Simulated scan of single mutants.
Amino acid sequence: MNYKPELLTAPKHGHKSLFYSEYVSDLNTLDRVDIAVLGIPYGSPYTIDEVTNDQTNAPTAVRQATDRAVRSIERYDFDLGGPLMAGQDIRMIDCGDIAGDARALGQHYKAAEAVVRKILQLGGMPLVIGGDHGVPIPVIQALDELGETITLIHIDAHLDWREEVNGVTDGYSSPIRRAAEMSHVGEIWQIGLRANGSARQEEVDAALAYGANLVPAHQLHDEGIESLLERIPDNGHYYITCDADGVDPTIMPAVNGPALGGVTYDQMRKLIQGLVRKGKVVGMDIVEITPKKDLNQITAVTACRFFVNLIGTAVRAGYFNRKKDLK
């Protein structure tokens, strides 16, 4: 599927974009972009009840936390050591959400891949808000546009290596298995694993046979995030996929599967900033937020702050430096 403006729909009520960025309804009007926000509300449902579950409201909920996470992009941010964009001319846009079609439930994945490819062709870093954890599948597939081997960084309480559930092979229990089948995906790091989830022995064996690096949450806490960063090879092209339940529920309570002892905010901040500095982060998604279960918007604010750390550190690392003659 080729990119067409009708693949996208406008953000819903309140803030129309993340971090006060420009809402662009037609990417064909652009000749370049630095950062592009994209909502992908709909996954590949296992049952009819999951077609429009509460996670489909998460892109809107995260956008609405903009003014709690970033009061103004000109203000000093102590996580970054200065304003978000560091006074630079950064072109950040919000593309809105991938439109769903009740008559063709698989079309939105094809649309998502087409839109992400268009973002990459414009030179942009895609920041994706799900939706359930199936939605990174078309995003990761689109990354072959870069012509680089992708190191996948997966934050989650769960392994997500199921072959299928109810005959569905691209749902929220299967994104890492599907990514492992993509020729442009290399090393896989799965961080924050804990408790008892969907994985059976077969899925664990499949992950280990691939060579996935499994980092349980207790190991992360015992050894420290700095030790983990040292193990991840330098100079990689990293894509970060973050399931909200991989993060500790004290700061991301709005999830269907809360598990104690998750990745902390400070660990995520250091992980994101460390990956930016050691190679090239080519994109990031945050998925599995269930807004009705949120408390004082803390889950949505936390998601925003993860994006803030990626954007602000990437700006300072020179990701978006361009020749002066580029418009």
Rank of each mutant, 00 (worst) to 15 (best):
I119V: 15
R177M: 06
I48L: 14
I140A: 00
D222W: 12
D205A: 13
I129D: 00
V276A: 06
I176R: 03
L30E: 12
D294A: 09
V301K: 03
E202A: 15
G130D: 04
H237R: 09
A209I: 07
Q190S: 13
I155Q: 05
G123V: 00
A217H: 02
M92A: 12
Y319M: 06
A114D: 06
M85G: 01
Y3M: 15
Q201S: 07
R277F: 05
N53W: 11
T66K: 05
V185A: 02
P41S: 10
Y3T: 14
N28L: 15
I155P: 10
I48E: 13
L146A: 04
E113N: 13
G106C: 15
Y23L: 06
M1N: 15
M182N: 09
T264W: 03
T302K: 08
I129Q: 08
A259Q: 05
A104Y: 13
I119Q: 11
R32A: 14
T9A: 15
H218D: 04
N2G: 15
A86L: 11
K278G: 03
F78H: 14
V62W: 06
S21W: 03
Y265K: 10
K292R: 12
L152K: 08
V128W: 07
E203Q: 13
A300E: 14
I140K: 00
E6V: 13
N309I: 11
M85W: 07
E145Y: 04
I98T: 12
Q201L: 09
A58V: 01
G283T: 05
N57V: 12
V281K: 04
I98W: 08
I40A: 02
L193M: 08
V287C: 04
H221I: 09
E288R: 08
